[in-house]
């Protein structure tokens, strides 16, 4: 009887030590699922989802506070990827948060720019170059098309322009109509 109690206590002690050691040694910093969600999000930092950026939205999804269909720039492909990652059903984009649009880039009409720097402060990725009372311009390569600079402009000199197709960005199209098959959605919904 006593031997059994001692043996079991010893076992429990050893197991406890091992688990305690593992908890310290293999501690996971941060929440890995947030990183995975963040990697799927398009990083436009536009805030259309209702959060302050892609990372906060990813954290909200991981915490179960936000749904997966609140990101218009990510579009349907993004929703499907999130659904696959989280083992949920894909659903259509929530229209409250906006529509899926073609890729855009912000362009400043440099003739009208008064150099107020308001757009520079609004840009989440520092893609606008300029100084107070000097002309501003958008670094097109860095612009994510988030539109956050459009509203603050007091003289309405920023316009969103769709990115034109060039020889290098042109793609072969799918020989069948786009709507004909949606297996990833169909299968997940079934």
């Amino acid at each position: 009887m006593i031997a059994a109690i001692v043996a079991l206590s010893a076992l429990a002690g050893v197991a406890g030590l091992l688990l305690g050691f593992a908890a310290v040694r293999f501690k996971v910093e941060g929440d890995p699922i947030v990183d995975k969600i963040d990697a799927i999000l398009p990083q436009t930092q536009c805030g259309q989802c209702g959060y302050a950026g892609c990372r906060p939205y990813a954290e909200a999804i991981a915490a179960g506070e936000a749904d997966i269909n609140q990101c218009p720039p990510g579009g349907e492909a993004g929703i499907v990827a999130l659904a696959e990652l989280l083992g949920r059903d894909p659903k259509p984009l929530n229209p409250e948060h906006g529509r899926e649009k073609p890729k855009m880039v912000a362009v400043i009409d440099e003739q009208s720019c008064i150099g107020c720097t308001l757009c520079i402060q609004a840009c989440p990725v520092d893609a606008i170059l300029g100084a107070a009372k000097h002309m501003h311009t958008v670094i097109a390569r860095e612009c994510t098309g988030c539109e956050l600079c459009v509203a603050p402009c007091p003289v309405d000199c920023i316009h969103m322009v769709p990115i034109a197709e060039t020889i290098t960005s042109w793609k072969w199209t799918c020989p069948i109509a786009d709507t004909e098959v949606r297996p990833s959605v169909d299968r997940a919904a079934a």
């Binding site: 963040d38 999000l41 990083q43 436009t44 892609c54 990725v125 860095e142």
Partner: peptide
């Protein structure tokens, strides 16, 4: 790649 760049800049 573009998203990764935007993430870093943000």
């Amino acid at each position: 790649q573009k998203a990764e760049l935007a993430r870093q800049r943000h």
